[in-house]
Write a protein that binds this DNA or RNA. Sequence first.
RNA 1: GGCGGCGUACCCAAGUGGCAAGGGAGAGGUCUGCAAAACCUUUAUGCGUCGGUUCGAAUCCGACCGCCGCCUCCA
Length: 465
Amino acid sequence: MALKLYNTLTQKMETVQPHHGAPLGMYTCGPTVYDFAHLGNFRTFIFQDLLRRYLKYKKTPLLHVMNITDVDDKIINNARAAGMSIQDYMAGYSDAFFVDMERLRVKRPDIVPYATQHIPEMIELILKLRERGHTYERDGSTYFRISSFAGYGKLSHLDRSTIETEGRVDADEYSKENPRDFVLWKARKPEEPYWDSPLGPGRPGWHIECSAMSMKYLGETFDLHCGGVDLIFPHHENEIAQSEGATGFPFVRHWIHSEFLIVEGERMSKSKGNFYTLRDLLQQGYNPIAVRYLLQSVNYRRQLNFTFDGIQQSQAALQRVNDFLLRVREIPSGRPENPVFDERLAQARADFEAAMDDDLNVSGATAALFELVKDANPLLERQELGPLNRDHILDFFSGANSIFDVFQIEQRELPDAQIERLIEERAHARRERNYRRADEIRDLLARSGIILEDTKEGTRWKALN
RNA sequence: GGCGGCGUACCCAAGUGGCAAGGGAGAGGUCUGCAAAACCUUUAUGCGUCGGUUCGAAUCCGACCGCCGCCUCCA
């Protein structure tokens, strides 16, 4: 079966497939690095990671490009306020961003272009638009005339006449022909970075970078373009106008937008005091893997209500799977196989993939995993699963984990030999019925995050995150 | 005002015509030296409300109530 995703442009579910044997081209709008990224940003990036990993799971060749916006008003202002060069200021947050992404196990895109390194491509694109009559100049700035592009509004499904008449006038840009015309090239201002160009000295408008960089790496028409719903209008609408205005070809086949994250039922905002970065959560002792689990657990097209209770629930759900995997790994080689279990496993795999194929229904896919856990646990209890069963289960979860990346598939190493000795000592104490000492040791280890569980086969340990 | 979405148990959340997935939390029990984990039982005759279509509706249609997003920089 093939993956189907909702397309904002056509407002329909559509199959995602490479064209003409070329790898699937996927462009995701990356961060503007003016501050630490927040949970809402990460919800979007984790969703994109999930999409990318699922395509890989399905062995679809893919080229993923994500931009970094490193020149814009906020960066310029913040850098100035911090008394830093734009370069230094932006590099700090750009690095922090990738550190956070790694903590959340979001894979780095294949290509990560920075806006400031693609100024010539942007200028070239604007010149092309100028040749084709889509632009005009005012006070040294170059604008896109939206009335020159017939398709304007097709992505956001906004009425053209409404767009053109009801826009507000930016105090900065009062001289535009139409309030909704947007800037392609901003005239140089004192104390701001600028580049010399045939358009005059200045810097690029925000939208042009995505058109220039996506088409440079993925071609004039490519497959997938993702971002948050807030980018539909005007950002992505403008990207379409710029790109198609310049090339005359369709820009993107499939537009995919993820919904917002809200916090404790309210829009996240600094003024409400419910604004969280990943760093805030880590400082409070939360596990980044549980955060990833939570942020990816709700379908990307639905608002996700982030709560602290939700992290706890995610942590507990993760623990159930990890405990299961721990027991599965303990199945010894000599034990007889369960001949019918592979059928059950095949069913779980089919359910899992059917759910993921359906617009990345993570809840459904996760349910397939938990249902298997539920069915297999009693078999483990009765020692009715053999080493082949074991390997097949681990293989299935390993496949699922290549997408979710939250489960503990491999056995961990004991942190140190001292712990090993304590476990030994406790076993000895228990044989002697010295339960006071045994409990003492168990409590001691629990305080350093090592949980002991006594089974018929002996004591097992697990490390809490 | 225009466009779009949502409302399923204590919490999170699947399900878009045929007996209401899954996870968390709670209660009781089995196992255990005690725990933990696991297992068993249990928690929505009902899916915002009221009507309608249908043999049959959480699912389709209509009205209403409530919440949210976009139309403005923003993932």
